[in-house]
Structure formats: C-alpha cells, structure tokens
C-alpha cells in the first residue's frame, strides 16, 4: 500500500512527520483530485502549494492570458509569461515544483453549460475566481453535484473565505442570496488589491483543501473567516444552513444552472 520512493519520502517528509497527516495522509493527497478555479491571485498560491503538497491530480481552469498588471499578485506567472495562456503558464510552474503531480490545464471559461462536466472529476474545488456570477455558479454546481469547495474573495486589504460541504454545512447562498447588482461592488481592477493578501487568502483556502483531503483538523465550515489586513484583524462569523436557501434548502428554487450577466469579465482595459 505504501510505495513511496526515497525521493518522495524526502520530498514529503514534513507532511509525513505531522501526526495528523502522516504516511496515510500523504497517500490520500496523492490520490486526491483538486480543481482550482482561476489562475489569478488566489489560484496562484493554491496551484503552487497543491502541487508542492503532492496532490495527485490538479485541474486549473482559466480562459485569460497573463497581463503585466497581474504580476503584482499572481505569483505563479513570471514576466516571461506575459501574453501566454494563464493555465499553461501555471501548469509549467506547478510541474517544475513537483513532476509527480498530474496537472490538467483547462483554457476555458466556466459557465452553466460546462461546469458540471468539468467538476465531476474532482474531489474538492478551490474557487479563486474574480467575479460574483462565477462564485455563485461554482456554489450552485458544487451543491448540486455534492462536491465540497472553498469560497474565497479579496479586495483592497480585505479577504473572506468559507468552506462548504454540501448537504452538511452552510453554502455560499445560505449567506449571500444572489450576486450584488452589477457595478455595486468594485473589482480589483477598479479598487486595487494589496498583492500579498492574495497569498494570505489563497493559502488559507489551500490549507482547507489539504485538511479536507487528509481529514486533519476542523474545516472552516459553517464559518465565514474574514480579515482586514490594514489592521491585521481576523474575524470568524458563525453561519448556519438556511432552510429557505434557494439552492441547498428544503425546497430549492434553483434547480438548474444559468449564467448570470458576466459584468466583471467584461471589464477589460
């Protein structure tokens, strides 16, 4: 059952030494399949740490190309990658860190028509997308498919994240019923974002993914963790599943996926 090479035992020694991960946890990581939605600020650290951790199969989905304005926070890409497909650039960096892992770059935009087909091959989804319609789409699709996921969002100095186990814990729609009206919330490209907070939040999400796979610790379920890095205040808000949630409640009104207006994605310079 345990067929690690000497090189792998050395590579993963700091995981194996952990009581709550150990040999068994590392085996689970090797068998796990995680999908990263977005190869941007959150997806960059996620992709790198998932690969470094030896997660056996990592999908990464994004339809953008690397722009110079991304490089202040999207650390999976380098200056030489400007103009390249983000998922190809990310895949190269991930394979460079750890040739053991299978990376599946998916240069497509997640939408109602393709999301179920894409997520069905994964055990955990890490949402690092940059717009509300996709965040709700990921939530609804994961709830319908019963696939656990981590929600994450950042803006300016602020970050927030929660982990959702469909059918067990509060989903994103239990907390936020629908996307905010278009243009009511500024995007990173309008409001700015401190580069390092992408790393702060993306690594919290990645730790959740690794904890879910290995069974270590307690997840951020039924909990919204938010921080304001300007004062480095962290806060946890307890959440509960809502009986009247339109997607995971007793009588769901959302039973099929639709694409909301992709206002944010239209904001290209």
């Amino acid at each position: 059952m345990i067929d690690f090479t000497t090189e792998q035992l050395n590579r993963y020694s700091r995981h194996i030494l952990l009581k709550d991960v150990g040999v068994e946890g590392q085996v689970k990581l090797g068998r796990a399949r995680v999908l990263v939605v977005g190869a941007g600020g959150l997806g960059s650290p996620a992709a790198l740490y998932l690969a470094a951790a030896g997660v056996g199969t990592i999908g990464i989905v994004d339809n953008d190309q690397v722009d110079i304005s991304n490089l202040q926070r999207q650390i999976v890409h380098g200056t030489k990658d400007i103009g390249r497909s983000k998922v190809e650039s990310a895949a190269e960096a991930m394979r460079a860190i750890n040739p053991d892992v299978e990376v599946r770059p998916l240069a497509t935009m997640l939408c109602a028509d393709n999301i179920m087909e894409i997520i069905k091959d994964y055990d955990f989804i890490l949402d690092g997308c940059d717009n509300f319609p996709t965040k709700f789409l990921v939530n609804d699709a994961c709830v319908m498919a019963g696939i656990p996921f981590s929600h994450g969002g950042i803006l300016r100095f602020d970050g927030q994240t929660m982990t959702v186990i469909p059918g067990e814990s509060a989903c994103y729609r239990c907390v936020f019923r629908q996307p905010p009206p278009p243009d009511s919330v500024p995007t990173c490209s309008q409001a700015g974002v401190l580069g390092a907070i992408a790393g702060m939040l993306g690594t919290i999400q990645t730790a959740e993914a690794l904890k879910y796979i290995t069974g270590a610790g307690r997840l951020l379920t039924d909990t919204l963790l938010s921080f304001d890095a300007s004062n480095m205040d962290f806060r946890k808000v307890a959440l509960r599943r809502q009986d009247d949630c339109p997607v995971c409640g007793a009588r769901p009104t959302i039973t099929e996926l639709t694409d909301a207006e992709q206002t944010v994605c239209a904001l290209k310079k």
Partner: peptide
C-alpha cells in the same frame, strides 16, 4: 533526524 522518524512512521504504517 528527521528522516529516521519518517522511516519509522512508514514502517509503523505497514
């Protein structure tokens, strides 16, 4: 250290 502990854990896992 720490590889002796790693190998011990691998042996125990079996």
């Amino acid at each position: 250290c720490p590889m002796n502990m790693v190998y011990t854990k691998v042996a125990l896992a079996e």
